[in-house]
């Protein structure tokens, strides 16, 4: 098994969690290097979302540790704390603040103080505005900035949520099925967007869509019944007979 090194950003070590006796995650170990982008694939119910729940503090594992940036065990922290340390997460179902404007969605996501009284007196700074403008360009929503997020299309909401992740300036981005419900063109644009942000950030993308994974062109981890089945390039794993058996062959 791989071991944690100096430039390891995320290291899941022997993580297990069971729901009512059902082992959703089973002795899962996984290493993400700093700046790496990784695609995680696997059949429905393989435990991909649960793995993200564990990394982000939503679910406590029964066993194992999640080492972040070499020294912090994330299993000892709560969601907000983990987010502040620099782990951003996009949900499987796009989740944005529907009644806020696109711009406010980004404003609230920006890295900065989260203190109750700081926020009561906070005013938008020039630097904040500049960062918002930058992000709006990146996610191609500049012309819809003052509209309510509820008015966006499904694909645009996915982008807005990715923009909100980037606004936090996280070290690690966990992206759960970003292409779900997108048109082919949108899917390819999303892959492009993620490739653009990788490098600066460590990114883990969960996705079903094989064209999308191919477009990402990164190392792939196949998850099955809560543990790693295979790891390597897409061509490498898709020729693995075990993988074909449980996932691709079906």
């Amino acid at each position: 098994m791989t071991v944690s090194t100096a430039d390891t950003m995320l290291y899941l070590n022997g993580v297990s969690v069971a729901f009512d006796g059902f082992k959703a995650i089973n002795e899962l170990s996984l290493v993400l290097e700093e700046g790496e982008m990784r695609a995680v694939v696997g059949p429905n119910g393989a435990g991909k979302t649960t793995m993200m729940d564990i990394i982000t503090g939503k679910t406590r594992p029964d066993k194992g540790e999640v080492i972040f940036a070499g020294n912090v065990d994330l299993t000892k922290h709560d969601e907000a704390g983990i987010a502040r340390m620099g782990v951003g997460r996009k949900f499987q179902k796009p989740t944005v603040f529907e009644t806020h404007t696109v711009e406010d969605n980004l404003l609230l996501s920006l890295k900065g103080s989260r203190g109750v009284f700081d926020l009561l007196f906070a005013r938008r700074t020039k630097a904040e505005q500049a960062r918002i403008d930058e992000l709006l360009d990146l996610i191609r929503l500049g012309d819809r900035r003052s509209e309510k997020a509820a008015a966006l299309s499904h694909g645009q909401k996915q982008w807005l949520e990715i923009g909100m992740l980037l606004a936090q300036d996280p070290k690690v981005l966990l992206v759960d099925e970003p292409a779900a419900g997108m048109t082919d063109a949108e899917t390819m644009q999303t892959a492009e967007l993620l490739r653009q942000v990788a490098g600066e950030h460590t990114v883990m993308v969960v996705e079903h869509d094989m064209d999308f994974v191919r477009a990402l062109g990164v190392k792939v981890t196949v998850l099955h019944e809560g543990s790693v089945l295979a790891e390597g390039s897409l061509d490498h794993v898709s020729s693995n007979p075990k993988v074909i058996d449980v996932y691709l062959g079906r």
Partner: peptide, 11 residues
């Protein structure tokens, strides 16, 4: 509107 989204943004 979205409590857990808010948490995952660090609030």
């Amino acid at each position: 509107d979205a409590e857990s989204r808010t948490r995952f943004l660090g609030y």
